Amino acid sequence: MRDDLDQLMARLAGSEQDRSLAGFEEAVLRGVARRREELRTTSALAPIRIASVGLALAIGVTAGGVGAATTFAQSRQVSPFSAAAHLAPSTLLEGDR
């Protein structure tokens, strides 16, 4: 079922336009200008984003380090329900390792 390209083009030329192309070029150029402005803004804010990520990473590492240091500095509490108890059933079942 092969149609001739000339017939298809003639049928397309004879049909009515379903939309107007008035203002199409201006809309495309406005979109291009808006995209360029967005890229310019994004590139201008890139150092601020990098600094923000670095600061958040530094705060997280510092807070995590302080939390870990205080956990290790505390004395171990020996009670039947503590995880570090030497007489916990889980440690007794392991045997001599």
Rank of each mutant, 00 (worst) to 15 (best):
V28L: 15
G14P: 03
L39Q: 13
R34I: 15
A10E: 07
G31H: 06
T42L: 11
S20K: 11
T91F: 13
R76E: 01
E25M: 03
E25T: 03
L5S: 05
D96M: 12
T71V: 11
R40T: 05
P89D: 08
E25C: 03
F72L: 12
R11G: 03
T62S: 02
A27H: 15
S15D: 04
G54Y: 14
Q17I: 03
E94P: 13
S75K: 12
E94R: 15
Q7G: 02
L21Q: 12
A46H: 10
T42E: 11
S52C: 01
F24V: 05
A88D: 09
A68H: 08
Q77G: 01
R34E: 15
F81V: 14
L55V: 14
A63P: 03
A63K: 09
S20W: 04
R40F: 05
R11M: 01
P89H: 06
R19D: 07
E37Q: 05
A85G: 00
G65R: 10
L29K: 13
L39M: 12
R19Y: 12
A83T: 02
P47D: 14
G67N: 00
L5V: 05
M1I: 09
G14W: 04
A51D: 08
G14A: 12
L55Y: 15
A13M: 11
Q77C: 02
L12K: 06
A68I: 06
G23L: 00
F72S: 10
R35F: 00
L5F: 08
T71M: 15
V53M: 15
G54S: 15
E94I: 10
V78T: 05
S79E: 08
L29R: 12
T42D: 07
T91L: 04
G95R: 13
E37W: 01
A84Y: 11
P80A: 11
F24M: 05
A27D: 15
A58E: 04
R36Y: 04
R36C: 01
R2Y: 07
A51C: 06
A51H: 07
I59Q: 08
T91Y: 09
S75P: 09
L92T: 14
R11P: 05
R30M: 11
L57W: 07
T42S: 08
E37G: 00
S75M: 08
V53Q: 14
P89Y: 10
D96F: 14
T42K: 07
T91D: 00
A22V: 07
V32F: 04
A51G: 05
A10K: 07
A83W: 06
S90H: 06
A68D: 09
L93N: 11
A51T: 04
M1T: 06
A27N: 12
A22D: 07
S82T: 11
T70D: 04
I59F: 13
E37I: 00
S43L: 08
L21E: 02
G31Q: 09
L21P: 03
S90N: 05
Q77N: 03
A83E: 02
Q77L: 09
P47H: 14
L8Y: 02
E26N: 06
R76G: 01
R19E: 15
L8I: 07
R49I: 03
P89S: 04
R30G: 04
T42Y: 03
L29P: 03
I48F: 02
L21C: 04
R30E: 08
G95T: 09
